[in-house]
Amino acid sequence: MKLIIKTVTKPGSTRANKTGAWRSFMPVFDHKLCSKCGICAIYCPEGVVYKLENGFFEPDYEYCKGCGICANECPKKAIKMVLEGK
């Protein structure tokens, strides 16, 4: 890596940092309970809950930090926080 002067950095390059490793609890989405409201995607601070083609939502576990906001906010209680490695 050569330094670009002006302390300039490229857009979106934090993607190199896989924050999924921070997680101790993992959100597990139950599509059977889901109403496809999208609230989980709105309030994910990492912006990593994505809408699938079938209209359901899933997180990108490479970056999900396991904060649990999505589970807490889901009106259908369709997301469970599960201890990692279980």
Binding site: I4, T7, V8, T9, K10
Partner: peptide, 13 residues
Amino acid sequence: FMLDTKNPMSFGA
């Protein structure tokens, strides 16, 4: 390099 919405760069990291 400059602040330009057509070529977004971050300054002052």
